[in-house]
Simulated scan of single mutants.
Amino acid sequence: MFKRFYPSEYVDSTYEIDFRGLYQKGYRGLLFDIDNTLVEHGADASEQAIHFFRELKEIGYEVCLLSNNKIERVERFNNKIKVKYIHNARKPSKKNYLKAMQLMKTDVNNTVFIGDQLFTDVFGANRVGLRTYLVKPIDPKEEIQIVLKRYLERVVLHYYKKSLKKKKVR
């Protein structure tokens, strides 16, 4: 029942993912949510994020930000990063995941999505068939509608972790 919301991987932070290893496995495109995935909600690009995106470009990745935020927010974050982006993405709708891959000239077989929310980020990417990384939110302070979703996410994550334990036993 909950499997459609399960990420391919669940990690503590975007910044701990082995992007060089993913590149060696043939991945060429990266889609990122912004808030609580790369920086705190509403924050500009940090020095860590700026360096991180520079490194991703050096590795050879095409990168696109996929955000449900308004254009002003996304452009402000992207000001020093300078990657492709789609604002008002309406995640979990499939449309803009597909559009982002067109912009990057990648496809579902060589693109990864990284985000902090199960019901928008991961669910939408799963609907398209992408490899997904769910990251723990950077900042626990969130808008009320997200706080409410987090309660439901805990239920799904409980079953997700249980399913991982079953796989290990086999």
Rank of each mutant, 00 (worst) to 15 (best):
104 M>N: 11
75 E>H: 03
97 Y>P: 07
101 M>T: 08
76 R>Q: 13
119 F>G: 05
136 K>N: 12
57 K>I: 09
115 G>Y: 10
102 Q>M: 07
52 F>P: 14
110 N>R: 01
67 S>Y: 09
141 K>A: 14
108 V>H: 02
54 R>C: 04
47 E>S: 15
53 F>K: 01
128 V>I: 05
54 R>P: 00
78 N>T: 11
74 V>G: 01
125 A>N: 00
76 R>G: 08
122 V>N: 08
106 T>R: 12
137 P>L: 01
142 E>M: 15
81 I>T: 08
115 G>S: 02
82 K>R: 14
118 L>S: 00
89 A>V: 13
140 P>T: 06
110 N>P: 09
51 H>P: 01
94 K>T: 15
127 R>Y: 00
81 I>S: 00
84 K>M: 04
72 E>I: 12
116 D>K: 05
59 I>G: 08
77 F>S: 05
44 D>F: 09
90 R>F: 06
112 V>K: 11
115 G>D: 08
82 K>W: 04
102 Q>S: 06
100 A>E: 04
64 C>K: 00
59 I>V: 15
103 L>R: 02
109 N>K: 15
43 A>Q: 13
140 P>K: 15
133 Y>I: 08
111 T>L: 04
77 F>G: 03
116 D>N: 15
129 G>Y: 05
122 V>S: 12
119 F>M: 12
91 K>R: 13
84 K>F: 02
111 T>G: 03
51 H>L: 11
53 F>N: 01
138 I>T: 07
85 Y>V: 06
121 D>I: 12
62 E>C: 01
109 N>A: 14
63 V>A: 10
95 K>N: 11
60 G>C: 10
106 T>C: 02
118 L>D: 01
122 V>W: 05
86 I>L: 10
129 G>D: 09
118 L>V: 09
123 F>S: 10
71 I>A: 01
118 L>P: 07
75 E>G: 02
48 Q>V: 15
134 L>W: 08
46 S>G: 13
47 E>L: 12
134 L>C: 01
52 F>W: 02
134 L>Y: 15
44 D>I: 07
108 V>W: 14
139 D>P: 02
58 E>Y: 01
104 M>G: 02
119 F>A: 00
92 P>G: 12
92 P>E: 10
60 G>D: 14
101 M>V: 14
99 K>A: 02
57 K>M: 02
75 E>P: 09
61 Y>V: 08
66 L>T: 04
89 A>D: 11
52 F>V: 11
126 N>M: 14
43 A>K: 15
50 I>R: 09
89 A>R: 03
72 E>S: 05
44 D>Y: 00
117 Q>L: 03
118 L>H: 04
127 R>P: 03
107 D>H: 11
128 V>S: 05
63 V>I: 14
120 T>D: 06
111 T>S: 10
114 I>A: 04
43 A>T: 05
89 A>M: 10
136 K>A: 12
119 F>K: 07
103 L>W: 00
104 M>S: 13
126 N>L: 05
49 A>H: 02
104 M>R: 06
70 K>H: 15
138 I>K: 09
117 Q>N: 15
55 E>Q: 15
124 G>D: 01
135 V>D: 00
47 E>H: 06
46 S>K: 13
73 R>E: 03
88 N>H: 13
